[in-house]
């Protein structure tokens, strides 16, 4: 598998706090890369740096052979990087369909074509019956699917998902996990932040573990679960338990 995204020594500080320090990793085409770490580890900042929402202090982000470091978010989207947000950002006063059409308009010039494409994606995320509902009327799980559908409508090669199962009820989680696996099956490369260790171990090809803004491990799930630094930082030590 070829490398789709390469992150080299990416760093960002806010005042004296090092949100990301020399983070390096790569993402192979077609894989699911899990990103884990306790609260404040710098996971969402990493997504913001990759997608241009936050400017990096140093380091670079390479998408295929293109340096996309500190480029505007809209341009990064147009280069094939889609994302969802930890704190959901639906267009609340618009319908689900209208939300997704906005994403589809990135590559479609014709509104009718964009609408049909949006409908296909809404069907893909199993919300076709809710298409005319306002975003504010949807449940948290449905809004997660909305955000996913909206990002998918931009035809991303790489999709960054920030806590796709966060804040949803237990019954909704299997459907969302199935959706992530469906994305992989459709050839979309996924980088996902996740707190649910069982899920991340099950779905990820590789895992990047962060703690206090630093990379502490980058390996396959089996090795991550046995990594002492990860256990210390994220899962807790035997002593602490």
């Amino acid at each position: 598998m070829s490398i789709l995204l390469k992150v080299e020594n990416l760093s960002r500080s806010f005042g004296g706090i090092h949100a990301n320090s020399d983070i390096s990793f790569d993402v192979k085409e077609g894989e699911i890369l899990g990103v884990i770490g306790p609260n404040g580890a710098g996971k969402s900042t990493l997504f913001d740096l990759i997608t241009g929402f936050t400017k990096s202090d140093r380091g670079q982000v390479i998408l295929r052979d293109k340096n996309i470091t500190n480029i505007r978010p809209d341009l990064i989207c147009r280069m094939g990087v889609g994302r969802t947000f930890q704190k959901l950002k639906p267009f609340a006063d618009q319908t689900l369909l209208e939300n997704v059409i906005v994403g589809a308009l990135v590559n479609e010039k014709n509104l009718k074509v964009a609408r049909d494409k949006a409908l296909e994606i809404i069907d893909f995320v199993d919300l076709i019956e809710k298409r005319h509902h306002y975003a504010k009327e949807l449940s948290t799980g449905q809004r997660k699917r909305l955000e996913l559908a909206r990002a998918l409508a931009t035809d991303p090669k790489l999709l960054l998902m920030d806590e796709v199962t966060g804040g949803v009820d237990q019954r909704t989680i299997p459907g969302l996990v199935e959706l992530v696996l469906k994305l992989k099956k459709n050839g979309i490369t996924v980088v996902t932040i996740e707190h649910n260790m069982k899920i991340i171990m099950d779905i990820s090809d590789r895992i990047l573990a962060l703690n206090q803004g630093k990379r502490i491990a980058f390996d396959i799930p089996k090795n991550i679960s046995q990594n002492s630094q990860v256990i210390d930082a994220y899962l807790g030590t035997v002593d602490a338990a």
Binding site: P73, C77, F85, K89, V102, R150, A151, A153, T154
Partner: peptide, 8 residues
């Protein structure tokens, strides 16, 4: 922000 992430 969401609009920006959708290429706007």
């Amino acid at each position: 922000d969401a609009a920006s992430s959708l290429g706007i």
